[in-house]
Design a protein around this nucleic acid. Structure first.
Length: 398
RNA sequence: UCCUCAGUAGCUCAAUGGUAGAGCAUUCGGCUGUUAACCGAAGGGUUGUAGGUUCGAGUCCUACCUGAGGAGCCA
């Protein structure tokens, strides 16, 4: 029997039960629902060390053998399992993944809540692109108006940081890119802290602290689930401070030495991300990317205006970028120039520019993708198992 | 959007261009401190769709549909 928190073997003894009840229990089908009462007994032969001797039972709903439970203990294909995601969630592995996800989200919130951050959630309907790069989902919004599903709460986060000092937002974001890989969803959850009076080094420190805090919590509270998932926890235990810190320049040199085709000025590809961490046991922070591959709002380096004060955290074991962020431009004139250079409509950014007119301060933040983090913690092959009902390029059901 | 691969029983997969099979699941019988039980039997098929080549197509060709992996882009 399974109740969501665990599994226990129940034993019905023929001589101890009414014949009718024993027969109905004997003929039960997989995934039928029932209420059982009985005596708990230590039993070394049983999983978990305990068994329940059935004294009474009530069958709530019996699954018909004409239409048996579709998911069997044997192998199933991905397509079949995804079509039955609403049932697949009952399995031991999926149950463990979702429990780890729950723990990660709770740990993220605990970290920020206990470090002086205020949760200020940002809108999901937004008037325009946050970064001017990604493809957005368009939504009809009354009377011929169009709005878009947010791809990031960051710009609003900058406003809340100016109002509250340290804030974070935590919600779903949407990307309409036709990405078809094991790392992409069209709808996923992202946590985005934003800090006033912060520079790139502060952002790196907070990101490192957060990652370590969350890993520590998962290892502390979810050993059982990681065991079910057959996760090699030594890989997670090896993740300690300090993370590797290298510049984009050094990353390119290292990648070229390892045979990558990358040239200075190009963004890192998926294979580059895997390549750069394959000999490391803790994440690497890569900072000071060329401004041309980063969003318009990144602060340029004081000594080298062609590079941006942004940082990406690349997880170990090929799980790729889990954090992206950095220091934002706080100067009005520079920000306006960047908006124009990126051919963005300045009038759409009036409120954002206001933040640089009224008491602007150096500030920064980052975004962390929850599902990628869950995949990393659980050691999953594919991000689709990290959320109860994944939304992907070609899947919006169940 | 592009590249590669796949689509056969409820599920997972076999089948040199020559009679479509197995395991699991289901049903029946047997056996059993089992825990992916085991033994025996039965039912279960328009081989993704539409064309084409051929004496003959699950197999070869074309188009389309569906799915998977990857690229680009990103978290």
């Amino acid at each position: 029997m399974r109740d969501g928190s665990g599994v226990i073997q129940c034993v019905a003894v023929k001589s101890a039960l009414p014949e009718e009840l024993f027969e109905s229990l004997k003929n039960l089908t997989q995934e039928s629902s029932l209420i059982v009462r009985g005596k708990l007994r230590a039993e070394p032969r049983a999983h978990g060390g305990f068994e329940l001797d059935v004294e009474s039972a009530e069958i709530v709903q019996r699954v018909s053998e004409d239409d048996p439970y579709p998911i069997t203990p044997k192998d199933h294909g991905v397509d079949f399992l995804m079509d039955h995601r609403h049932l697949w969630l009952r399995s031991r592995r999926q149950n463990a993944v979702i429990h780890v996800r729950h723990e990660i989200i709770k740990a993220i919130r605990d970290y920020f809540d206990s470090n002086g951050y205020v949760l200020v959630d940002t809108p999901i309907f937004t008037p325009a692109a946050c970064e001017g790069t990604s493809t957005l989902f368009e939504v009809d919004y009354f009377e011929d108006e169009k709005v878009f599903l947010t791809q990031s709460g960051q710009l609003y986060g900058e406003a809340t940081a100016m109002a509250f000092g340290k804030t974070y937002n935590f919600g779903p974001v949407f990307r309409a890119e036709k990405s078809k890989t094991r790392r992409h969803l069209t709808e996923f959850w992202m946590v985005e802290p934003e800090l006033a009076f912060a520079d790139l080094e502060d952002i790196k420190r907070v990101g490192e602290e957060l990652v370590l805090f969350v890993i520590g919590r998962v290892l502390e509270k979810r050993r059982e689930e990681l065991k079910i998932l057959e996760r090699d926890t030594s890989k997670l235990e090896a993740v300690k401070a300090p993370f590797h810190r290298i510049s984009y320049d050094d990353a390119v040199a290292k990648l070229q030495a390892k045979g990558s085709e990358i040239q200075w000025g190009m963004d890192l590809g998926n294979t580059d991300e895997t390549l750069i961490t394959d000999d490391l046991d803790r994440p690497v922070m890569i900072d000071r990317y060329p401004s041309s591959v980063k969003a318009f709002y990144f602060q340029p380096a004081p000594d080298r205006p062609e590079v941006a004060m942004g940082v990406d955290f690349i997880a170990t074991e090929g799980y790729g970028e889990i954090i992206g962020g950095g220091q934002r431009i706080h100067d009005y004139d520079l920000l306006l120039r960047r908006i124009q250079e990126h051919n963005l409509p300045p009038e759409a950014f009036n409120w954002y520019l206001d933040l640089r007119k009224y008491g602007s301060v150096p500030h920064g933040g980052f975004g962390m993708g929850v599902e990628r983090f869950v995949a990393w913690m659980c050691g999953l092959e594919h991000i689709r198992e990290t959320i109860a009902f994944p939304r992907m390029l070609y899947r919006t059901t169940p």
